[in-house]
Design a protein around this nucleic acid. Structure first.
Lengths: 230, 230
DNA sequence: TCCGGCCTCCCCCAAAAGGGGGAGGCCCCC
DNA sequence: GGGGGCCTCCCCCTTTTGGGGGAGGCCGGA
């Protein structure tokens, strides 16, 4: 049995969703809430498996509530609460979807979907999957492909470098100085300078800062992996 | 009427999919192919709206075929061929999904889905949306959130900078030299040096190369947007 | 065998970058 | 009115960087 909580500031909408879901034999609506604050409270109390969350609400919006609920959930560390959130909103998601996914939402659907789709989304997410509105999936894909895909022509330029030069470029992209690169590669600083020079000239770059840009743009370095502790 | 082409090296599988789809009143299977080469040929000839594409095939795999078909489609520039591809595979998608999305696929499903889901996916994609297997959507989301989310603690460090300093940092992240920054910001080179110095000291960085790394890691600069023409 | 690419290191030199300090003007807040 | 923060620019200095050579050793292909 999938335990669901419905969060929406409009009681009518809330009841509508609840009725649709309760009509399914494997789904049970165990709680409702009308604000983000109430949602946090109710989530703690009823421990639902799935939360259907509206965004626009008084007191605290659904994104903030989502972030707090999921943070509390993982803090509890209990395996009994892999509570997952599906954002359900009326509005154009463009400005929200990013924050929602960052907050940890497992779904993002528009309220204009047919009831069966809502039920399907609940089951899918309860099953460990994720479900986005088709248009959102498309945008996510295109952003993903773009972000990872730029490397095409640039990666070709990369191939003009020798192995050693690529290693040096990677080190540069870590923010290392020539001396540090020399130490990590077990070669002399003069050698590093030679490699750096050929990297720059082969790639048509002017200085190591541009080399760092290049490394990120072509995918040799990727944001998200680095400890910027230096 | 949605015109579909089914590509799979196993004739039996192909026929199965075709029967399921042809059973729907709004879907028509107009072509089949058993290899990537055949698929490219058949796509040109029959101009389907949707292609269901297997990955593992002799002669040319489905990913390569997808890339070529979509490239040909956009080269044709004709608005009559917004041909979209749904990848349908048996195997663990982990190693393929990335290439598939880069190739331009609008969907990525596993063959173990129920027939209704296949039909739904075809309709969704034909309608301009995208559909991924739930697990894949989840992974895509987590990668997305991770990539964009690193900025949290680093973005706080960013807030210690003044407006001007952030502008300078952004310019550094474009690979500009101090003189170039001075020109784009309409200030003197000496002033730029001052700003650069305070940026570095405030962020605990050593040189502009590390500043570029920081900018990418905290999201001030993002891969994919830059022309690395310098 | 010899040539060419690669890796290693050296020299010198000019330019850029980074650090330190000082200074004037501006604006906002106490 | 007097700080204090910010933006602007100046000075001098050291370090790093990048460019231009040259050179020896290694290895694989012509």
């Amino acid at each position: 049995m999938i335990r669901v909580m419905v969060v929406d500031d409009q009681a009518l909408v809330r009841r509508g969703f609840a009725l649709v879901l309760d009509n399914e034999s494997d789904i049970e609506v165990v709680a409702e809430a009308g604000t983000g604050i109430e949602a946090i409270e109710a989530a703690r109390e009823h421990q639902p498996d799935i939360i259907l969350m509206d965004i626009r609400m008084p007191e605290m919006d659904g994104l903030e509530a989502t972030a707090q609920i999921l943070k509390a959930g993982e803090a509890a560390e209990a395996s009994d609460t892999p509570c997952r959130v599906i954002i359900l909103t009326t509005f154009d998601p463009d400005e929200y979807v990013f924050r929602a996914l960052q907050a940890g939402a497992s779904g993002f659907m528009l309220k204009d979907i047919p009831p069966e789709s809502l039920v399907e989304a609940v089951r899918t997410v309860a099953d460990g999957g994720a479900m986005l509105a088709p248009g959102i999936t498309r945008r996510l894909i295109s952003q993903f492909a773009q972000k990872m895909g730029t490397g095409r022509n640039l990666a070709e330029r990369l191939e003009r470098l020798t192995t050693r030069e690529r290693e040096v470029l990677a080190a540069i992209a870590h923010g290392k100085s020539n001396v540090e690169i020399a130490e990590t590669l077990f070669i002399g600083p003069a050698t590093v300078k030679t490699h750096v020079s050929s990297v720059l000239s082969k790639l048509g770059l002017r200085d190591r800062a541009q080399a760092v840009v290049f490394a990120y743009e072509c995918g040799l370095a990727t944001a998200g992996g680095r400890d910027v502790g230096f």
